[in-house]
């Protein structure tokens, strides 16, 4: 299979079930909503080292937020249900509660599983906090020096999918980066999916474990590292000198599939030789995204 002369390898991305929450942050203007979202999603690229993965899903116009102010929607994921609440309490308390003008709302109000994040954060109010029930949902008003921080008492939790991915195999670094940027641009407006890595792109794809250091959970993906092509079992085709990866987390398989397809199509530009994907032989993750299948519209 080829798209504009770029080979789509007959392989699949292998992804994992995660636990997800959607956080809606609003602010006096988009700048402050975004400032909080950027801090909240900072150092949240991979559960390997960050204990969570998060990214900005999309910017929300004032008409789409609970308080009528501009907002940002964030997807936040962890590997287990318990740690999702803990990470959210830590991060919302340090990054959103602290940020001028912001308020923080549950973005999955219909999810039956609830994380009582706002209820935990309320104690920052030292007894001066107050709650309000509005439309059946409880919010906490936490007094702060600026005024009040408003936060939903609980946030919905649902299963999500982490680790959707594809690899851009290019003739040089310029082409790889241009293709990755185009792919990110195609994915960014899509709902239900985030790209947790810097600018949405990973240069340091990893494999499970280590060939040399037994304690390490993940080490460089030597099979896709062009500099190691001559000394390892390589997956880098002839003429490829740079590989970049896009990692996608989302709320369900459909969101990941649609985003991968859009990203791959956008990445097929001059200088790109092939699109591949990372997997573990299908033994570790239950979500398999076969590149050729997701790029073939169902008849």
């Amino acid at each position: 299979m080829e798209i504009r002369g770029v080979t789509i390898e007959d392989t699949f991305a292998e992804a994992f079930t995660m636990h997800a929450a959607r956080i809606v942050i609003t602010g006096r203007n988009m700048r402050w909503a975004r400032e909080a979202a950027l801090k909240l999603t900072g150092f949240a690229t991979s559960v390997i080292g960050c204990k969570c993965e998060a990214g900005i899903e999309r910017e929300l116009p004032a008409s789409d937020t609970p308080d009528g102010r501009p907002g940002v929607s964030v997807l936040f994921l962890t590997m287990d249900a318990d740690s999702l609440g803990k990470r959210l309490i830590e991060r919302l308390g340090q990054t959103v509660l602290t940020c001028p003008t912001t308020a923080c709302f549950d973005g999955l109000p219909k999810a039956p599983d609830r994380l009582t994040v706002g209820k935990a954060l309320r104690v920052f109010g030292d007894g001066f906090q107050a709650s309000k029930v509005i439309g059946g949902a409880r919010y906490w008003r936490i007094p702060v020096m600026e005024g009040e921080f408003l936060v939903s008492e609980s946030f919905g939790r649902q299963t999500g999918v982490g680790g959707g991915n594809f690899l851009i195999l290019a003739g040089d670094a310029d082409a790889a980066l241009a293709a990755a940027e185009a792919a990110v641009g195609a994915i960014e407006p899509m709902e239900g999916v985030v790209l947790p890595f810097p600018g949405g792109v990973v240069r340091s794809g990893s494999k499970v474990g280590s060939k040399r250091y037994k304690k390490l959970l993940a080490t460089t993906n030597d099979a896709f590292s062009p500099t190691l092509r001559a000394i390892t079992t390589t997956a880098v085709p002839d003429g490829v000198n740079c590989v970049l990866e896009l990692v996608l987390d989302g709320l369900d398989d459909a969101a990941i599939s649609a985003a991968m397809a859009a990203g791959i199509r956008a990445a097929c530009i001059d200088g790109v030789r092939a699109i591949s994907a990372g997997n573990y032989g299908g033994k570790l993750g239950p979500h398999h995204f076969h590149l050729r299948r997701i790029l073939t519209p169902a008849s």
Binding site: P66, D67, G68, R69, A103, K132, I134, R141, G147, E148
Partner: peptide
């Protein structure tokens, strides 16, 4: 000040 819960209440 601008109580943040009021805008949520009014829009609701």
């Amino acid at each position: 000040y601008q109580p943040p819960h009021l805008s949520v209440t009014f829009l609701y």
